[in-house]
């Protein structure tokens, strides 16, 4: 039997959902693999939703909004795009970014809706079933995505993505506009660090581990682990639990 992917689409009410309806009214046919959650605006999509969806084992997530400049809520789709790019940056760390896609479909583009949905379904079909679907899931991937979900839930990442347009396109509190390259450099670093920190927290929530143990488990340099653990300790999120010989063991608070 060929693999039929399970896809979840988040559609904005005013453009893409209307475009999907128009595909129906025009009897344009496309494969029946996608289920739809209607939201008023693509800007409503909390990045957490996308990770939660992937964690359930759904094979692909499609976010559809109004074309840039056409948002019913003026700029909600621009906010959606910034959040989506962030989600992709996280997923790229584990080479999972091709399982999510963002596109624009207007209320008059029934044929385009059918086309982009068909193409996405084909792309997921080619990639095969999600390693998080079925009985025996890839636990390491699950933990990585869970850490990412926690990252996009964290205030640091949310503050950065929430302020991005204002500080790169208008100006920050001090009347300066931050060049997009400079912003991206800071953002990329924050994404990487937050992911490592959330991954450490996840490991320490079930086990007591040393820096070395964590470095082995996360396949990262011990110095990087230590640096992030010091940050977590200063935030009051982890602490020493005991000392094994000369090696301190950590736990989550």
């Amino acid at each position: 039997m060929t693999f039929e992917p399970k896809i979840l689409g988040f559609l904005c009410n005013w453009c893409s959902y209307a475009g999907a309806d128009l595909a129906g009214v025009s009897r344009i046919q496309y494969p029946p693999n996608m289920r739809v959650i209607r939201v008023m605006c693509s800007g409503r999509i909390n990045p957490v939703f996308i990770f939660k969806t992937l964690l359930t084992g759904i094979d692909g997530v499609f976010v559809l909004g109004c074309h840039p400049g056409d948002c019913h809520y003026l700029e909600g789709n621009y906010e959606a795009e910034k959040k989506f790019i962030m989600v992709q940056k996280f997923l790229k760390i584990v080479d999972f970014d091709k399982r999510v896609r963002l596109d624009w479909v207007s209320a008059s583009e029934g044929a385009r809706f059918a086309k982009v949905v068909s193409e996405f379904i084909d792309s997921i079909r080619e990639q095969g079933p999600s390693p998080l679907s079925g009985e025996n899931i890839d636990q390491e991937l699950f933990n990585n995505l869970k850490a990412m979900e926690n990252s996009v839930s964290s205030d640091r990442i949310r503050a950065l993505v929430g302020r991005q347009r204002k500080i790169t396109e208008v100006e920050n509190e001090y009347g300066e506009k931050v060049p997009i390259d400079e912003f991206n450099a800071i953002f990329d670093e924050a994404i990487h660090d937050e992911f490592v920190r959330q991954r450490i927290l996840l490991s320490l929530s079930t086990k007591v581990l040393s820096v070395k143990d964590l470095a082995a488990e996360l396949k990262l340099d011990p110095s990087e682990i230590l640096e992030n653990m010091l940050t977590l300790k200063s935030r009051g999120e982890i602490d020493y639990q005991s000392i094994d010989g000369n090696t301190p063991l950590y736990m989550r608070i």
Binding site: N46, Y73, E79, K83, R158
Partner: peptide
């Protein structure tokens, strides 16, 4: 639209 809720840190 819900943008504030999706963004709220």
């Amino acid at each position: 639209c819900g943008v504030c809720g999706a963004t709220c840190i």
